[in-house]
């Protein structure tokens, strides 16, 4: 039996952390309740004491906890980020997920013994970039950006000595992560600094007859006909008009789902699968983690993924294999 891929699962709150652990996560990743992580949504994430309790719950059951500190520290205000790194280290987390060069430098020099993973927000999409982070900051794992095909991932893994983690399910950035300013262009809030894309404070839904209209700041993002499945009000899943024709020019409201490609990703040399969704409820976490636990174990035994229906939790109630298939481009 091959070694199963490590299953890295999201938790936006203590209840979701327990749900992920109970559903068979190998690792749960979390963030602090501030702008130091890329899911800085209102009412979400962990206080220091919640993380302490969460770590105890997870470690007691053999599950590891990674802490994402994956926004870019603000110039003139590095303290919240440095404190987040120090506190995560002091509380005993198993790895830090970092994106900023300066912060990686800080973590490497202050907490050399703590594992450092490169966040997808660093968008390291090629062998030289990955080597840079490995040589400069001793990064032990790279979360690959959602721009590569499975063939390219295999090629990459053949040339590098760090572990790679890829997104397996959930929200799908169609732009290179950490290099996208669409949301800040419309709202002034940046995923890179404030840790939030399409912030709820700027989202407005309006009923117009039998249609639902979503707005972000001063812009209309989409109009859903009655009964048409909806998506997040993110700009890259919006409907826009180009050359007189309205379409989902960037991407349809859809979720990534590679549950049927797990053997391919194993063959490509991937070490871990990441499930997106720290902003989702614990019902989502239970359902998705359970399904992937079975699929990852089945793949390790050389069996096909057991049938499961994750359709209802997907954005727009559709899923895609995204950039992993070349024709996506």
């Amino acid at each position: 039996m091959a070694e199963p891929l490590e299953l890295v699962c999201p938790a936006g709150a203590p209840a979701a952390l327990r749900a992920a652990v109970d559903a068979g996560a190998d690792v749960v990743y979390v963030g602090f309740r501030d702008q130091t992580n890329a899911r800085n949504f209102p009412g979400l994430n962990f206080s220091r004491s919640e993380l302490r309790d969460g770590l105890a719950y997870a470690h007691d059951r053999g599950t590891r906890v990674y802490v994402a500190i994956n926004t870019l520290p603000e110039a003139g205000n590095p303290d919240p980020w440095h404190r987040a790194v120090d506190d995560a280290a002091a509380l005993g987390c198993d790895a830090l997920i970092l994106a900023d060069i300066g912060l990686l430098d800080y973590a490497a020099s202050h907490h050399a013994g703590l594992r450092r993973h490169l966040s997808v927000q660093a968008s390291a999409s090629n062998v030289e970039s990955i080597r840079f982070y490995q040589e400069a900051f001793g990064v032990q794992r790279v979360v690959l950006p959602r721009v590569l095909t499975v063939a390219e991932i295999a090629e990459l893994n053949a040339q590098i000595t760090v572990e790679t983690e890829v997104f397996a399910f959930g929200g799908l950035c169609v732009m290179a992560e950490g290099r996208c300013a669409l949301s800040s262009y419309a709202t002034g809030q940046s995923p890179n600094v404030q840790g939030v894309c399409s912030p709820a404070s700027h989202v407005r839904y309006e009923r117009r007859g039998d249609e639902m209209v979503s707005h972000l700041g001063d812009y209309t993002i989409n109009v859903f006909a009655d009964g048409e499945p909806a998506g997040y009000p993110t700009l890259c899943k919006g409907r826009f008009v180009a050359a007189g024709r309205a379409s989902y020019i960037f991407e349809e409201p859809t979720s990534l789902n590679v549950i049927d490609s797990i053997p391919d990703l194993m063959a490509a040399g991937v070490k871990a699968l990441k499930i997106e969704g720290r902003q989702r409820g614990r019902a989502y976490v239970s359902q998705v983690v359970s399904a992937f636990r079975k699929a990852v174990d089945a793949a390790a035994r050389g069996e096909p993924a057991p049938a499961c229906d994750l359709g209802s939790v997907t954005e727009g109630q559709r899923n895609t294999t995204g950039a992993y298939a070349k024709d996506w481009r």
Partner: peptide, 30 residues
């Protein structure tokens, strides 16, 4: 791109606007 940051290391170069430099720590490292 960061790949170029590695390949240009040790010689004078410009960091372009597509590489994220948001703070003093990153600026100092580069």
């Amino acid at each position: 791109d960061i790949s170029a940051v590695r390949l240009f290391a040790g010689r004078p170069h410009v960091i372009g606007p597509f590489v994220n430099v948001y703070n003093e720590g990153t600026l100092r490292y580069l």
